[in-house]
């Protein structure tokens, strides 16, 4: 083989053709979808949108500051829903995670599928829907919100925690087992220290998400600041809505800051 005959190309002719054709298909698909999407659009309303937005904006401004004291109690409720809900979720998620992890499950054929089922069920249903169901079952109020948050958190914490358990260094576990330690001692000395940073990181992360989620649970009657938001929306009290949104924004920023601090302190 002579060096002059070698001809390097990034893609072969056939590959180039295939890529060009793929682009063509994408553009055609986009045009078709656009037509389908805008079939029922009333364009008059869309052209009008900036004016409408400006109008709503002017009615929302300025926020009604005097409404603030009235919001403190529901805000406290919201924080409690998030925190107690996270706590409940953690307590329920830890055993589920140990049952779901391949290397710690007591039974691969029975308990592991059950644990995975719990995780999937909890994750696939949004907090708001859990809250709707629970308000119907146990009536409106904080308790429904707390349980909704807890049920939603099991899946999230359980999944991330069982993945952390599966990634541990088995040599450390083997060494503890070799000393003659019992099953729980092996877990406590060999596994727990290895997953503790992940555990705290996951918990604080979920708490941060739960604060955001608990602000809207009131919309379906599960207590907290969402209740105020709903009643303000119902009477078109826009300045109050602005006030509530500002407060939620502030709370979320604060919780995010706390969770970032805690996580960087652990790692």
């Amino acid at each position: 083989m002579r060096l002059e005959d070698l001809n390097w190309q990034y893609r072969s002719r056939l590959q180039r053709l295939a890529i060009w054709f793929a682009w063509l298909l994408t553009v055609a698909l986009f045009v078709w979808c656009w037509n389908l999407m805008t079939r029922d659009t009333i364009w008059l309303f869309v052209w009008d949108a900036p004016t409408q937005a400006a109008d709503l904006g002017s009615r929302m401004m300025p926020p009604r500051w005097s409404y603030l004291p009235e919001l403190m109690q529901p805000l406290w409720d919201t924080l409690n829903i998030a925190t107690l809900g996270t706590l409940g979720g953690v307590i329920l998620a830890v055993p589920v995670a140990f049952m779901a992890a391949r290397n710690t499950t007591p039974s691969r054929l029975l308990l592991r599928p059950i644990a995975l089922g719990i995780i999937v069920t909890s994750r696939s249903i949004n907090s708001l829907i859990w809250a709707l169901l629970l308000v119907a079952i146990i009536g409106p109020g904080l308790l429904a919100g707390i349980i909704a948050i807890a049920l939603r958190s099991i899946g999230f914490i359980g999944k991330l925690l069982y993945e952390a358990i599966e990634e541990i260094d088995e040599k450390q576990v083997e060494a503890v087992r070799a000393t003659g330690a019992s099953g729980f001692q092996v877990m406590h000395y060999g596994i727990v220290p290895q997953i503790l940073p992940a555990f705290f990181g996951i918990t604080v992360f979920r708490w941060d998400i739960n604060i955001r989620e608990s602000t809207i649970l009131g919309l379906v009657g599960a207590g907290g600041i969402g209740l105020k938001l709903q009643s303000s929306l119902n009477v078109l009290a826009w300045p109050q809505v602005t006030m509530i949104l500002l407060l939620i924004l502030l709370t979320v920023v604060a919780s995010e800051w706390i969770s970032a601090k805690v996580r960087s302190a652990i790692i």
């Binding site: 450390q172 060494a175 503890v176 000395y189 290895q194």
Partner: peptide, 14 residues
């Protein structure tokens, strides 16, 4: 029976 390991196998975070 005491055991000593190749990569030490200490519980690193303890």
């Amino acid at each position: 029976i005491g055991m000593i390991f190749q990569e030490f196998a200490l519980v690193e975070r303890l």
